[in-house]
Design a protein around this nucleic acid. Structure first.
Lengths: 219, 219
DNA sequence: AACTCAATTAAACGTTTGTTTGAATTGCTA
DNA sequence: TAGCAATTCAAACAAACGTTTAATTGAGTT
């Protein structure tokens, strides 16, 4: 009988379950959710083909588990950082941007996975064009969006609600896209651009987005 | 014998071929490349299942045809607009951003398809995490990237080459993401944000990105 | 009217997919 | 050690996929 949430789980039972989570996270990051078959996952996790359906019920629920485990702590950390911000002062807008970006960078640098892999999976979730994933991610994103919109409008009072919403969306897009494609920039630029580290990408993102966020005051 | 490029094609022959291109463009925009089967395409195009393989050789080559037909004219228009810019003056940076965005908006508004559908397909190409598509899009993107980097550095001399590359990437990400998700913003914001038109989205993108592009001079 | 060849059609092909089944195995508890 | 539930396993399942084949159609040419 399959294990569902909240039940008592023996130590050996969670072993392969966590191994499945870990491996599928890696593979999903590299090739996307559809392209990775259960056979590939279970082979790499040294588990039986039926293990996924036994432990998670279906491939769909495996994807949900992987994404939730990844996205939820990042969004929670975002809200924590946002609360700590001093909303008065000239650097407030930059702090908002940092509160959005840094949880991703932190998780990527701290995690047991490579930075690159984590970023790819994360941006696959944010920017996913798959209905199943978007509906999943967007279920917990409204709260994050609302809080960031409020903070932005408090710091930049001249920004309307609609514009604030859009700018948060612009930020999310820029972050997701560049986290996923930054390693390809050396190729696409034909060698003329080589990002040395994830931190340097972060710094440039912050500067770029801070300027965009606070745009329009002088007009 | 299948028809390949450059051959003489009778009028009735191109009829179903163009119908296939049109229908698959719509379906790809809505559900992605993998999720749409040849059976769904041919049914909607009122053609036989084998029609795709006959006219295009394979599903892969159909995707290539759809994407190329869509992306190439947009990128060419971008380069045309970029050449027309007066690179001296305070509005130069905004003009660069407009040269990047407007070809998409133009094509979306002019096309026979709905704006929304065009934007979705376009951003599916730009932000695709599918190796087959990225390699296809990135084949013609290096030229665009290089030209925009040069223009940006001419207008903002304090920006290094690496930073300029990154900022173009940020811009591409913000555009692709918001073009795809802007219709969901009314949902995700729980009704608090409703973008009235594609043009208003464009205007806000331009303002946001122009500020981000020219950031850093005062530092 | 006979021939030609591009275009269409229905049917089947071989793979791969996620999922299910029932037996075998493991690990803990009494 | 016996027993029981949780887990693993090999095998098979039905469905969907892209592709191929061979026969048929239909318009244009000689």
């Amino acid at each position: 009988m399959p294990i569902t949430e909240g039940e008592s789980i023996s130590a050996s039972a969670t072993a392969t379950k966590m191994r499945l989570l870990d491996v599928s996270g890696r593979l999903f990051a590299e090739s996307g959710f559809d392209s990775v078959s259960l056979r590939l996952i279970t082979e790499n996790a040294e588990a039986n083909l039926a293990a996924v359906n036994y432990h998670f019920g279906s491939k769909e629920e495996l994807i949900v588990a992987v994404v939730e485990k990844l996205v939820r702590p990042v969004n929670q950390r975002r809200l924590v950082l946002l609360k700590q911000i001093n909303l008065e002062g000239s650097a407030a807008c930059q702090s908002i941007v940092e509160a959005f970006i840094d949880p991703v960078i932190e998780a990527a640098s701290r995690g047991d996975e490579e930075d690159q892999r984590f970023c790819k999976l994360m941006s696959r979730c944010i920017a996913s064009r798959d209905e199943r994933i978007t509906s999943l991610v967007l279920r917990q994103f409204p709260e994050v969006l609302a809080k960031f919109v409020d903070a932005l409008r408090l710091v930049c009072p001249w920004i309307s609600s609609d514009v604030a919403h859009m700018r948060i969306m612009f930020m999310a897009g820029a972050v997701a896209h560049s986290l996923f494609h930054y390693d390809k920039l050396v190729i696409i630029s034909e060698g003329r651009c080589d990002i040395s580290s994830l931190d340097s990408l972060r710094d440039e993102l912050v500067q770029f987005l801070s300027a965009g966020m606070s745009a329009g005051i002088l007009k």
